[in-house]
Computed example of a mutant assay.
Amino acid sequence: MNKPVNYGFPTKCLYGNQITSSCDNTGAISFPIYQSATFAHPGLGNSTGYDYSRLQNPTREHLEKVVCSLENGYDALAFSSGMAAIAALMELFKPGDHIISGNDLYGGSIRLFDNINRKNLIEFDYADTGRDDITSYIKPSTKAIYVETPTNPMMNVTDIRKTAAIAKEYGLLLIVDNTFLSPYFQNPLDLGADIVIHSGTKFLGGHNDTLAGFLVVNSEALSEKLRFIIKTIGSGLAPFDSWLILRGIKTLSIRMERQEQNAIEIARWLQHNPKVRNIYFPGLPTHPGYEISKSQSRGFGSMLTFEVEDAETASLILSRVKLIRFAESLGGVETLITYPMTQTHADVPQAERERNGITDTILRLSIGIEDIDDLIDDLSQALQ
């Protein structure tokens, strides 16, 4: 019998909690791509366990089991993108429901909340979930607290245990976007969260070659609700993309270690550059979330935001970098630099951006696995 085993994290990246799969008897080391839309039945009332790939596909199922094991969850669901996962999640709520959300989120999440979910009469209040008294936002219609930690792009840290205790006291769902740290460095379900979100495009995939999203839940009830939603709206991840993410996850632990090591070195180097005003990286002891990060995470990740002296300097850096690419997205093996004001947060109202500190002098780095000296040399020439 293929019983689940509690493997260490690097082993889980390869197999999840089960070495073999019941749907494959070929001995293939690389899990097969089941590129089939539909599956035949042996007879009436008799199924192989697979009917139609919108409902479930063996490749997607295997990926979901791996991701579920990494987050220590009850179930994981794989979607066609991170935003597809969040959009499906919002279908748990009905008109009149109220959600308390972090105020410094990925711009696409804010765009969804403000333009789609509000249209459907779901109410939002944005709060600094790392500093504000969350209880002051709670009202009878409140159903959930939604946080990113660290946040995108200002790297604010929320105390997950403390927020989970508030959610439990008031009977609310706690939803945590764990994209920036990945399950290698942080497991929000273990800290009391109910639902974890990942843009699988980022660190889980790790190679900037496909889109994916995940919801990982801590209960059968949430699993059943979301399984109904994913099969109904049809946003499940395709077989080939599932395979690409499976392949990426195999090296997750190795990549995260190297990327964090590079990020710490770059953060320290930036501290000594006269054109850099501020560095937002939880791995620096001067960061206000440093102690909380140490208490709830196993590392600080490789996302780093910094502020330069003026907009002209920011523009020059973006035009001068050579090895580092000026591009959106994050989490891949290649180092990318992003200008949040016109890229990831372009659809966020200017007043709200500026209130969160996102100005024309802010740059975000997603640090990859390149040689650290090469990265520093590139930043040095770009900051001249």
Rank of each mutant, 00 (worst) to 15 (best):
N57A: 05
H287L: 05
I99L: 09
S380V: 00
I324Y: 01
D310W: 11
F306Q: 03
I358V: 14
D125C: 12
Q384D: 15
L211T: 09
A382Y: 12
Q18Y: 04
A314C: 10
T232D: 14
P340C: 01
S47Q: 08
E307T: 15
N115Q: 09
T20R: 08
D128P: 02
I160A: 05
A327S: 12
N278K: 06
N120C: 02
N356F: 11
R298H: 09
I19G: 01
T163I: 12
I369L: 08
S253W: 01
S219Q: 15
Q56N: 13
T335K: 02
L204H: 06
I175P: 02
K65Q: 12
V66T: 09
D310N: 14
S219D: 13
I99K: 00
S297E: 08
L363E: 01
L70C: 05
L14P: 03
D177M: 07
L44K: 13
I33D: 06
T26R: 13
S80E: 04
N152G: 00
D132V: 03
G234I: 06
T11F: 02
L55E: 13
S297K: 06
V66Q: 06
F228A: 15
L92Y: 14
C68Y: 02
S109Y: 11
L191F: 05
A87S: 14
L375Y: 11
G368P: 14
V196H: 01
L222Q: 10
L226T: 04
R355N: 14
A212M: 10
P188I: 11
E291L: 13
R325Q: 05
G16L: 09
R131D: 01
L191Y: 08
R258V: 04
I362T: 07
L92M: 08
R161V: 12
E257V: 09
I229R: 05
I166A: 01
E169N: 10
K322R: 07
E220F: 10
P349V: 02
R268H: 12
V66F: 03
H272E: 10
L330F: 14
N46Y: 09
K65Y: 04
L237A: 11
I116Q: 13
Y7Q: 03
R325G: 00
E307A: 06
R60V: 06
I317L: 12
T163D: 15
Q271G: 00
E354S: 06
I116H: 13
I229L: 07
T342M: 15
R131I: 01
Y7V: 01
M303Q: 08
S81Q: 04
S136I: 00
V157P: 04
V67A: 02
S109P: 00
T344W: 00
I266G: 02
Y34D: 04
G200S: 14
A346I: 12
E328L: 11
T129D: 03
Q350G: 04
N6P: 00
S53K: 13
I292L: 06
M341D: 07
I229G: 04
G206S: 03
Y137H: 14
F9R: 11
E352L: 12
A314Y: 01
